[in-house]
Design a protein around this nucleic acid. Sequence first.
DNA 1: GTGTTAATTGTTATAATATAACATTGTGTA
DNA 2: TACACAATGTTATATTATAACAATTAACAC
Lengths: 135, 135
Amino acid sequence: MKHMHKQENLSKNQQIVLDYIEKVNEPIKAYSILHNVQKKGIKAPLQVYRALDKLVEIGKIHKIESRNAFVACKNSSCQLSKATAFSICESCEEVSEISDNKLSKYLKSFQDKAGMKFKKYNLEFFGLCKKCSIK
Amino acid sequence: MKHMHKQENLSKNQQIVLDYIEKVNEPIKAYSILHNVQKKGIKAPLQVYRALDKLVEIGKIHKIESRNAFVACKNSSCQLSKATAFSICESCEEVSEISDNKLSKYLKSFQDKAGMKFKKYNLEFFGLCKKCSIK
DNA sequence: GTGTTAATTGTTATAATATAACATTGTGTA
DNA sequence: TACACAATGTTATATTATAACAATTAACAC
């Protein structure tokens, strides 16, 4: 087999960034990551963004587009970030990943009227979480 | 009835920005809007962003979150930006608004397992449009 | 009309998010 | 070894968005 350069393991910076995102366990912004991994030797935004790009690509993390934030994937079966759904509380900004088989099945098989073939989707629900709706 | 300050018509800047977005008829970025409405007297980013905020709020335009771009609402019934779905071509970046009754019904009634009450959602599908999948 | 409130505008400065460009180093494998 | 590619390090800059504050305008109550 020629040129099988597909990497199995994460690189140093990728691992540092992933470790931190998994530790905080909530959506976090790129520059906040940067500030928190500087002691590990990561000095520049680009180092963080490159790691983020890779981690998103391989499905270890997801980007919450409406918040420009990144969160670790909870869904162990999620190998690629190609079918993501989140609920977002507009009050406390709590975000959780939705893993609902029926929903993902429905969306994966959704057919556009224009005949477009979809490879990926991202769905974000907004509202008030239980705690915030009591207040 | 006291203090019914709900405005019926758009303000000057809001109308200028909306007119331009409707004219171009495709997703457009805030600073591109700014460059193109400067002849109309809008000078600063904030003037654009304020108009955009309002137009999104009242459902005249939508934000394509994954692209940081804004597009006029095609769906005449769309009074509020609370249920939006788009298809996005990853090659040519063509975006179209999906209006599919079954889909919106399904998503509006979707119930989170955590019991969160949703007020809004945004769904973005990614893939290749017809033209680009031929190439 | 006056007074009141909220929406909108204008303006300058700055914050927050993200990428370009280029040189260098590391890693797997033929 | 040599090759191809992935990852890193670094500086600078581009892009997206908001803070803060003063002034003006619009809608309505009285």
